[in-house]
Design a protein around this nucleic acid. Sequence first.
DNA 1: AATGTCCGCAACCGCCTGGAT
DNA 2: GATCCAGGCGGTTGCGGACAT
Length: 273
Amino acid sequence: MVRPCFFDNNGMKKGAWSNVEDDKLRAYVLRYGHWNWRMLPKYAGLARCGKSCRLRWVNYLKPGLKRGNFTKEEENFIMELHNQLGNKWSAIAANLPGRTDNEIKNYWHTHKKRCNKRKEAATQVEVAQTIENPPSEIETLKESENLMLSPNTANWIARDTTSLDLISVSQDNSWPETFLPITCTSQGNMLPAVPDPFELSSELNFSELSCPDFSMLSDLHWVGDDSVNSSDYGFLGNFWNEPNETNYLLPVEEANPFSPYISYFDDFMVNVS
DNA sequence: AATGTCCGCAACCGCCTGGAT
DNA sequence: GATCCAGGCGGTTGCGGACAT
């Protein structure tokens, strides 16, 4: 898993380090120290840039570096420190003797990826179970067609009654408590207008009405609206009948970022709260 | 056995910081 | 105070081994 080496336009070698280069760098630094990384490769007889030498030394050649997998204790410590410090890899590494910031950063990214995958898989199961056995209160509300289940998460989505541009999102089948603004794409897709509804402060910033990469609600589209003729407005299916369908379309008026067809249900929240 | 896909990690890149001038 | 530059940092890339089909 090493990059093949090559020479750039300045004659500097790039890519994987050979054993001979490692030996030269190690020998030089151990004997003379790294008094100037930029000048060092010249004196050490290396066709590398100073930065490359420093990185190789710090991440690979420096004595005392541990290699191999992180122990459980180290993993826990990284979690703890990341909670405190965020992405301050060098600060985290300073607390883990023998580990480099690069190593910790790599570990964190793969760990995050693994967690996301697990979460995604768990959510799929949860969605399937929730569709199969909806809680009774939600089952009732569903009838009103103001409530539906996100196909990507197990969150129930309720239409808001007092405003055109709010919907509610619930977690864990509890009644929705969080409101978030949504926007409507030119294709008629509903998108959340804030990055993460569960991290909202009490004060929403309604000026930030775009969130292209928030996937949670990106496939959500209102369907089953009695007052809209589906053939007129291009519905491709029914959300309740086809929970896995992700290609529903919603009629949209270009002039209004929020579709008028989500405003029909004025008493909804009053009825249930 | 061949092929495709995923994943880990070394290395690169660009930006930031702080000390020297 | 302005500029330069080395060192440091965090984000990203891309190769190749491991694993799945």
